[in-house]
């Protein structure tokens, strides 16, 4: 294992993050604050409680997931896409480094950023609502697993994309709508039966449900099912990345 190479990529990506701190940290934190103001205060005054939890507190896990999912994809996809776009990928491909090590560097850094962001959003939420995390280890496990999985997904998008438009298209047109419709701001039990069944086809429901369980022991689906879904998605990402590396898809001609 070439640790110096992994460290070089990891540090490079983290340094890039710090250089754009306003965009990478402040922007999601401000967005989350606005969600609390709009959903927590304005709508929360009309929906007082869900499953015995105040509405403001109820939306915290969903808001963390919303930020973590979008930022994981955005960070990981941009990290690998940018050297492809500038042509600097030549250095990565000509270095004595295996694909696994490249992945560890990029996805490791993107996962770290997502976890830091998730914790910052939780801290921000603490200023607006009382925070209660009944299973902090499970919460951390979900946060890490979700960040890792979606950073791998972002890495795939970064290799697949051949323009900035494609880089944005999956997070904007698929992930954000799925997160909004995945129970971030409501429990799917509040929906008519038909839409409850439709919601079960949305994988984000399982992520948010499991994550929310770690806070309040309340979930739309069982914790076991949530874990199975996220592991299946992680496995799918691993298989796809393995195929990309084996074939050199969009990396090597």
């Amino acid at each position: 294992m070439n640790f110096y190479s992994i460290k070089a990529i990891y540090n490079f990506e983290m340094a890039r993050w710090w250089r754009t701190v306003a965009q990478s940290i402040l922007s999601p934190v401000i967005s989350t604050t606005l969600y609390f103001v709009v959903f927590g205060s304005a709508i929360g005054s009309r929906i007082t409680e869900i499953d015995g939890i105040s509405y403001g507190s109820f939306i915290v896990p969903g808001l963390v997931m919303l930020a973590v999912l979008t930022e994981s994809i955005s960070n990981a996809s941009f990290g690998i896409y940018f050297p492809r776009f500038t042509g600097n990928i030549y250095e990565l491909l000509s270095a004595p480094i295996s694909y696994i090590e490249i992945l560890l560097g990029y996805v490791g850094a993107a996962t770290t950023k997502s976890i830091i962001l998730g914790i910052m959003i939780l801290t921000t939420a603490g200023f607006f609502v009382p925070l209660e995390i009944r299973h902090p280890i499970v919460m951390l496990f979900f946060l890490i697993l979700t960040s890792l999985t979606f950073c791998m997904f972002g890495f795939i998008i970064g290799i697949w994309a051949d323009g900035f438009e494609k880089l944005q298209i999956i997070p904007a047109l698929i992930i954000t709508p799925l997160t909004f419709l995945g129970g971030s701001f409501y429990t799917i039990n509040m929906l008519p039966v038909f839409w409850q069944k439709v919601s079960l086809f949305n994988p984000v429901v399982y992520l948010i449900s499991g994550f929310r369980w770690s806070f309040y022991e309340k979930a739309d689906v069982s914790l076991k099912l949530s874990l199975i879904v996220i592991f299946v998605f992680l496995l799918a990402c691993i298989v796809l990345i393995r195929w990309i590396f084996k074939t050199g898809y969009r990396l090597k001609s």
Partner: peptide, 21 residues
């Protein structure tokens, strides 16, 4: 094709690390 926003010092040190040194 070097990274536009990196300094000379950082980009050269990055290359050394990337090559496992």
């Amino acid at each position: 094709v070097a990274e536009a926003f990196e300094t000379v010092w950082h980009t050269v040190n990055f290359s050394r690390g990337l090559f496992g040194k």
